[in-house]
């Protein structure tokens, strides 16, 4: 007869049941580990991130052209907010930029020219092993210096730059890829400076971080609206439409359809709050992404934030498989997918 051992629940456990529990726990840990590794480290093709790199680089270049159109008003010795004031604002935190200490206009212009050059190189995919982290770092320094002028666009740009630099995003649709092919045709060995367009775990890690970060943004964007009564009584979109400072298209006539405005407000809060759940299953993902395009497209066109709306759509593209993205690009450019 087998000895009986009392367990915490008061029931009698035999060594057999203990062994089953141990096996179950071990099985859970093994399954969790396998799922974790598959989620984070499955090597993935870089084509989606290649497209995101072009969009992000182009927007980065445009953003800095706009800063440059009145550079000294934003960064100069008599800027709207001087370096001294920014240092005071960030006293005691870790938001630091060397730009807080630069007052010399020639130096600021030289630095800005470097920023524009890096953004352009990043967009066309030239020297991305260097230009990707450099684009992130330089833009970070601008963000820390330009407190008071920033909004959602800057947040999403920093998100994209931070994760794109972790992956070989310059290995496709880029000058680097063209140079790599040229080297191979000439019979030379591949260079580390020119990343290969092969599946990599780095691409997967960057993609997952981007996707999860986006889920956090939408989760808090959604639940923060749950606190507001206007999102529930259906008047929120009316007050967004009649905001003269945001308005870029006169859509005040929509106020004649309060049922429609109420429904749109409710769709927005449910979509935003549950995005982090509905974007993962294969069957709900297309609907979730379609709503993202509709919402951000509306913000871009109606509320005058074309840049912000566009980049939010871009970051949503991180949920498109690289295989699909490659096929779409091949179809649009009418070039073989192998190029």
């Amino acid at each position: 007869m087998k000895p009986k051992v009392p367990n915490n629940s008061g029931r009698i456990a035999t060594p057999d049941t203990q062994a089953t529990w141990s096996a179950n726990i071990l099985s859970y840990v093994t399954d969790f580990s396998t799922a974790w590794n598959r989620f984070w480290f499955t090597p993935t093709f870089p084509h989606t991130l290649g497209v995101l790199r072009i969009a992000t680089g182009a927007m980065l270049f445009y953003m800095h052209m706009v800063w440059g159109s009145d550079l000294l008003s934003f960064l100069g010795p008599d800027a709207w907010l001087t370096g001294d004031v920014i240092r005071l604002i960030h006293q005691g935190d870790y938001t630091w930029s060397y730009l807080n200490y630069i007052d010399s206009p020639p130096l600021l212009w030289a630095h800005h020219a470097l920023m524009l050059m890096v953004a352009l190189c990043f967009a066309v995919g030239f020297g991305t092993r260097i230009t990707a982290p450099l684009a992130w770092f330089l833009n970070l320094m601008y963000c820390h210096r330009l407190t008071g002028h920033l909004f959602g666009l800057d947040q999403v740009m920093m998100l994209l730059l931070m994760y794109l630099m972790l992956a070989p995003c310059g290995s496709v649709y880029s000058v680097d890829a063209w140079l790599q092919r040229k080297r191979k045709r000439a019979g030379k060995s591949p260079s580390w400076w020119l990343p290969d367009a092969t599946p990599s775990s780095a691409t997967q890690v960057a993609t997952r971080l981007m996707q999860l970060h986006l889920c956090v943004i939408y989760l808090f964007g959604g639940i923060s609206k749950l606190r507001g009564e206007m999102w529930w009584d259906g008047s929120a979109l009316w007050y967004a439409l009649v905001n003269w400072e945001y308005q870029s298209i006169d859509a005040v006539w929509l106020g004649h359809y309060p049922t429609l405005l109420g429904a749109l407000a409710h769709i927005t809060i449910f979509w935003e709050t549950f995005y982090c759940a509905t974007v993962w299953p294969r069957f709900s993902r297309p609907w979730t992404l379609a709503l993202a395009i509709a919402v951000h497209g509306g913000i871009a066109i109606g509320l005058g934030m074309i840049t912000f709306g566009l980049m939010m759509i871009v970051v949503n593209l991180s949920f498109i498989s690289p295989i699909t993205m490659r096929a779409i690009v091949a179809k649009i450019t009418r070039r073989p997918a192998s190029e």
Partner: peptide, 18 residues
């Protein structure tokens, strides 16, 4: 193979195993 046309799916589903 990358040139297969597929419906949009998450990136981990079409890549090599872990």
């Amino acid at each position: 193979t990358p040139n297969q046309h597929e419906a949009p799916v998450a990136s981990n589903e079409l890549a090599p195993p872990a």
